[in-house]
Design a protein around this nucleic acid. Structure first.
Lengths: 155, 155
DNA sequence: ACTGAAACCACGACATA
DNA sequence: TATGTCGTGGTTTCAGT
């Protein structure tokens, strides 16, 4: 993971359809050396895959909501996690510090779907004690581009 | 945006490197008709771009944190938004309902970077009144695959 | 709007340094 | 680990339905 790899990962996040010729220019390498690098990044798992980046509104999921959930510790926790992973509407679920246990990110078609998720799915899960919903009014920024960190000595 | 388009968008989210031949099978169309559809989806902005999906940890951003911020309403709000958009570490920023104004999602190299962001960037912004940080201990689910909604009559 | 074929270009393997 | 060449295969375009 040197300077060149970092440049490649940045470029590939911005435009994964670039093509090796263009990438080679960015990297300052030949096309085949660039191809080799990209293949390595995939093999090492640095690149996990290639995705089309879709407009949520245009695929019928204009609503964004975050949900804070307090879940009782213990055995029930595992079943909560499993249930959450099965839900398509749940894009993210993180165990967090603070007075809440989990923070979920949801994409939904409309408020009816949110209501249904909260009352017919989430609240019914064992161990769920308290739920708070933060509905998104406006999105100021939403990016999937990770800030690739500069060199870390211990590599 | 018919059934075929929806199938294509789902497939392209899962694997954007699939190739038209494979996609054509999914769509049940010829290769060139499939190519046409994908091009249209791009032109209409349904597909916003093509991205390499990276492993955050491997590009030096293992830390995930969410920040709730209460910001005074008024003119200062615009400068808050502008500042937040400039910050690479801020992957998302949403104006939300409830007792907080904004919810931010951050990717960072380490706690030092988080400390620096909170104290030397966020808290210094005009109008910021209160800040609460939710550090992610474990990620249960993190997906960028939108749940493409089935047919909406009014299209 | 979809099909099929032809032209073209980009990718991937190989031999070399 | 990088380079350049060559062969293959996929993408693009075009004429036809």
């Amino acid at each position: 993971m040197d300077e060149i790899d970092r440049n490649l990962t940045v470029a590939l996040q911005l435009d994964g359809s670039a093509g090796l010729a263009e990438l080679a220019k960015v990297a300052g390498l030949s096309v085949s050396a660039t191809a080799e690098r990209v293949k390595r990044l995939e093999e090492r798992g640095v690149i996990r895959g290639w995705r089309a980046d879709l407009d949520p509104a245009q695929v019928g999921c204009p609503l964004l909501a975050h949900v804070l959930a307090a879940v009782a510790p213990g055995r029930e926790d595992a079943s909560f996690r499993k249930a959450v992973r099965r839900q398509e509407a749940v894009l993210e679920c993180h165990a967090v510090t603070g007075s809440w246990t989990y923070l979920l990110k949801l994409r939904l078609p409309d408020l009816a779907a949110l209501d249904q998720f909260l009352n017919e799915e989430l609240r019914l899960l064992p161990g769920v004690q308290r739920v708070e919903t933060l509905l998104t009014i406006a999105t100021v920024k939403e990016s999937s581009i990770l800030p690739v960190a500069p060199a870390d000595p211990e590599e």
